[in-house]
Computed example of a mutant assay.
Amino acid sequence: MPDHSTDSSLQHTTSAAQYNIVSCHECACEVLLPAIPNKHKALCPRCGFNLTTQHKRGLQWVCALALSALILLLLSLPFEFLSFSANGQSHNINLLAGIGILFSEDYAILGLLQATAILILPGFILCAMLVLLLPLQFDIVIPKAGQIAQLIFTLLPWSMAEIFLIGVLVSLIKISSLADIAIGPSFYAFVLFTLCMSAMLMFFDEHQLRMAINANVRRHPKPINATKSIQTTWALLFTSVLLYIPANILPIMVTQTLGNETASTIIGGVVLLWQSGSYPIAIIIFIASVLVPIGKIVILCWLNFTVQQGHQQKNQERIRWYRLTEFVGRWSMIDVFVVAVLVSLIQLGNVMSIQPGYASIAFCAVVITTMLAAMSFDTRLIWHKESTPHE
């Protein structure tokens, strides 16, 4: 018989409430879910995963915030974003021009990454949200609504507008002592866009959306393929380890000032920030670019090894470590965005210019492969009492 678990405050729910069955995303436990009062949530009884959180008029809030975020994203494009001046020369950019500079300077990979993570994917997600939710305000469910919703869930981890914004702030602090920096109206529009999108995700609930569009609320999980999951995760982790070596040995950024060229590695940049007195920024970069990638690789290796050996101890502890790696993994992209912003902004010819080093590409690949490794790891294996064959 399915398990039934919600917050203790849900005990007053009457037996007349309507129930549905959901399968936990992380452990495949089937849970009999009642109607949930406002501002309450239902947790999986096995692993504690948040199955759903009820917000009064939650989808209406998501719709309103998505529309606001989309308008602000469009407003952040045409106007000046940042300007930089030194020794009588100045350079200003908007978001599109900054990406164009990366392409024109033959840094297409960085340009494509920035365009995709901060403009294309967020814009697509917001448009898809509105396509789903605006008709729902009139009780209309569009065709293929379930497939559109699934695409949104798949793309959300790769939308990194908030990480880019932190990268911009770090960049400004890095170069504030070298030149005059001015912030344009597009910067403020982008800040408001990021806040609206973050607020939208606070109200966005996968289960509530699926119920609204009648998209297979029960969602029977795919069969577990332990061997494929474990082998894929090992391959991605091994690749990330190989990439992590050049990412830390090679220069991530090369600065040219009056004919003098200075190359800096990730660790070198952290040391320079610390020596200049920017202690909070140095700590943020050290955590995001050094500790997080190493920690994520070590934790995923441990998790993958334990499920391969069929361990059944410390399941709650293991799932908590997995959730931590999944949450923090994206934030390692801060350093990549810092490099992309500085390259776009600081192009003053022989006076001063910045170019990305090969480590920026290697480190970007480390972040992507570790994110893919976390996604390929099947958390349901933690809860299954079966030994996986050694391959």
Rank of each mutant, 00 (worst) to 15 (best):
V254Q: 10
I148Y: 02
V367T: 10
V141A: 05
S8M: 14
G329L: 11
K56F: 02
I319Q: 00
S23E: 14
F187R: 14
G184E: 09
L51M: 13
T6G: 15
H4W: 15
D205C: 04
Q150H: 11
Q355H: 06
V170R: 00
L169K: 07
V366D: 00
L65P: 05
P221H: 02
T194Y: 10
V131I: 12
F238V: 13
E391Q: 05
I181W: 06
N304K: 08
F203D: 04
E261S: 12
Q114L: 13
I181R: 03
S289H: 10
S332L: 09
W302R: 09
V307Y: 10
G269W: 03
G98F: 10
S15A: 14
F327L: 15
L133T: 11
V366C: 11
L151A: 13
I354E: 00
G123S: 10
I267F: 09
L237A: 02
L372T: 04
R219N: 10
A128G: 00
G329Q: 03
T116A: 11
K228H: 02
K39Y: 01
L201W: 00
R318L: 00
M333S: 10
P223A: 09
G329T: 05
K385Y: 08
W158P: 03
V338K: 06
L119Y: 11
L72T: 08
G88I: 09
L192R: 12
W383A: 01
S264W: 02
D7T: 14
F363K: 11
M375I: 07
Q308F: 02
I266G: 03
F363L: 15
L381H: 01
Q347A: 04
V191Y: 02
F81A: 02
Y244S: 13
T306N: 12
V168N: 05
W331R: 13
G269K: 02
A282D: 02
C27K: 04
I175D: 06
E206M: 07
A359Y: 00
I224L: 11
L121E: 00
F286M: 14
Y188N: 10
L74Y: 01
A16I: 09
E206G: 10
L59C: 08
V339S: 12
H207S: 02
A108M: 14
I183A: 07
P356A: 08
Q114K: 09
L126Y: 01
H207M: 06
I224Q: 03
P45K: 07
M253R: 03
I266P: 05
A149Y: 01
S264T: 05
Y244I: 05
W383R: 00
G58N: 08
H220L: 09
E162W: 08
Y107E: 10
R380N: 04
I287T: 07
P246Y: 06
L10A: 14
L130E: 07
A86V: 15
S360R: 05
L155Q: 03
L121D: 05
Q60Y: 09
T306D: 06
T232A: 07
I166P: 06
C47F: 05
S332Q: 03
L300S: 01
V131C: 11
